[in-house]
């Protein structure tokens, strides 16, 4: 056993002296294409990780997950607030744009920060963007965003479930709306607040299903 831990497969790697990027030495042709692609993809992620590590202050290691660096959260909150005000002023396109920026910022949050925070943030932002899309009849975009939102945070996200269902209803996709809403009700539980609206929409959907068949 003790010997196997000391063994490893050596890969012919080269280091670009300027950018410090690691790459596979091009002359090595002993690998199959599948191996080659997995190695190169691993090396690209490694290089990306390296770049993000360099941007940290010394000692260049990811800080422990808690506490979180408040800078990014503050920026995201600021963007979201301005997007919310734009939405309230019925400037829906501007709201969508700002939400998109906020989502981009939340998506590029460094990986070592707690996943729960990222999920919460993304779920909220996607749900809001879905609303902004819906108010300008962007049913497709609204539906996609609502789906992304419930993916991030399935429980306690009645708004996103309702919005996704509504978008599907607007597009006349009754069956999909039914299964989506049913899933929402199942996950949220019958007793939680806001479920009433889901059930109401579900009733409407069931009527629609009956009509369309």
């Amino acid at each position: 056993m003790a010997q196997t831990i000391d063994l490893f497969n050596q890969y012919p790697l080269t280091l670009d002296p300027a950018s410090k990027a690691i790459s596979l030495t091009p002359s090595s042709s002993t690998y199959t294409s599948a191996q080659l692609s997995s190695i190169t993809s691993e090396l690209t992620t490694l290089n990306a990780l390296h770049r993000s590590l360099i941007s940290l202050e010394p000692p260049n290691i990811p800080p422990p997950p808690l506490p979180i660096n408040p800078k990014r959260s503050a920026q995201i909150n600021k963007l979201r607030d301005s997007a919310n005000t734009a939405y309230r002023k019925n400037n829906h396109q501007e709201a969508v744009r700002l939400y998109t920026y906020a989502i981009e910022m939340a998506l590029t949050r460094p990986g070592w920060e707690p996943v729960a925070v990222a999920r919460e943030e993304l779920a909220g932002l996607y749900a809001n963007r879905a609303q902004a899309w819906m108010s300008q009849q962007g049913w497709v975009e609204g539906m996609v965003d609502a789906r992304a939102s419930v993916e991030g945070k399935p429980v306690g996200n009645v708004k996103a479930w309702w919005r996704g269902g509504k978008c599907l209803v607007e597009m006349g996709r009754w069956e999909e709306a039914k299964s989506f809403l049913n899933r929402g009700v199942e996950i949220e539980g019958k007793t939680s607040e806001g479920v009433k609206e889901l059930l109401q929409l579900l009733e409407e959907v069931e009527e629609g299903v009956k009509r369309s068949t």
Binding site: N9, Q10, L13, I22, S38, L46
Partner: peptide, 9 residues
């Protein structure tokens, strides 16, 4: 793979 790359480096 990651371990191999680490040791290769």
């Amino acid at each position: 793979l990651q371990r191999d790359i680490y040791f290769s480096l």
